[in-house]
């Protein structure tokens, strides 16, 4: 997905991404990305935790307000893994 993030930006279409997989995204130089420590399979937030899902999306959308590349933003969003 990091390469798609790059491809969109190269095509002149700004794109934002949020992921728990910070190492891969940093290595690929994704241009607009937020990082969480949410578990794999719950990228946007815990099940039925609409408030958290919304916080993650809103924080990620903030990246549209700046010119790319944007320094990756680490969000304090996590959940207990079942």
């Amino acid at each position: 997905m990091s390469l798609l993030n790059r491809a969109f930006e190269i095509e002149g279409i700004p794109s934002v991404m949020t992921t728990w997989r910070d190492g891969v995204a940093r290595l690929a130089k994704a241009p607009r990305v937020t990082f969480t420590t949410l578990p794999r399979g719950a990228t946007i937030g815990a099940p039925h935790d609409t408030a958290q899902q919304r916080r993650v999306l809103e924080a990620t959308f903030e990246l549209f307000k700046q010119e790319a590349p944007v320094k990756p933003v680490v969000l304090d969003e996590t959940m207990e893994e079942a």
Binding site: E9, P14, G23, V24, L27, P31, R32, F64, P69
Partner: peptide, 19 residues
């Protein structure tokens, strides 16, 4: 070997409320 790049692409800022 995961994908590795040295530079991130540049791009414009946008107003999502108008996008």
């Amino acid at each position: 070997q995961y994908s590795k790049n040295e530079e991130a692409p540049s791009g414009k800022a946008i107003d999502l409320s108008q996008s």
